[in-house]
């Protein structure tokens, strides 16, 4: 350590000595690189590329993902022939999985209801046709605490859970809650009493 430079001033720091070596070059390098980065980053980010600012970037990302959704093959399943696809089957497993994952807390594992209505009886608040059921799930009844599931569920999953709900009608839950809404007929249309 012969090249060490000492601080030669008569201090007494309780016996502690100080050398006066040069600042390590790599250390100075870090200092300058980070400082220069800061100086250039500001104009780069805020002035030259304002589209990279969080809100603008969010909009761009949104657009990209929406495009992905639009391009997804799920488009092929047209919800118009819901009845036919319900009858054709093949949705049972998916429908149950979706129901178990998302709907059980409010509608109970067997559809008997709790926080949300009983889905097994012949009474519906929003109608019992497949189209009615599909729409409620899709749009929700937000002010009543049934959220809109369209943003969460893929189109196929949404259809499947709608079919599954339809299939719950007429089953017997362990402890269903009292019916809510109006009576519907076989097809799910409200029975209008004069």
């Amino acid at each position: 350590m012969s090249e060490d430079r000492k601080v030669d001033v008569p201090h007494d720091y309780d016996g502690i000595e100080e050398l006066d070596n040069d600042l390590p070059r790599w250390w100075l390098g870090i200092f300058w690189v980070t400082t220069l980065f800061a100086v250039f980053y500001w104009p780069y980010y805020h002035w030259i590329n304002p589209q990279k600012l969080p809100e603008a970037a969010w909009k761009a990302e949104n657009a990209a993902r929406e495009a992905e959704r639009a391009a997804a093959p799920a488009e092929t399943t047209e919800s118009l022939d819901l009845d036919a696809r319900y009858a054709a089957g093949g949705w049972e497993e998916t429908g149950k999985t979706v129901f178990d994952t998302y709907c059980v807390p409010c509608h109970a594992a067997d559809g008997g209801g709790g926080i949300g209505p009983n889905l097994t009886d012949d009474y519906y608040i929003h109608g019992g046709t497949l189209a009615n059921i599909h729409q409620v799930i899709s749009d929700g009844v937000v002010e009543k605490g049934m959220m809109s599931w369209k943003p969460v569920l893929k189109p196929d999953d949404l259809d499947a859970v709608a079919f599954f709900i339809r299939s719950l009608r007429g089953t017997t839950p362990a402890s269903g809650i009292a019916p809510q809404g109006e009576l519907v007929d076989e097809s799910g249309q409200f029975v209008t009493q004069e």
Binding site: D4, K6, V7, D14, G15, E18, L19, L23
Partner: peptide, 18 residues
């Protein structure tokens, strides 16, 4: 800065760095 040189019994590396 106090206890390290005490325990190591060595000098601080660089005053100007500090």
């Amino acid at each position: 800065y106090y206890f390290m040189p005490k325990a190591a019994d060595g000098p601080i590396y660089s005053y100007r760095l500090s």
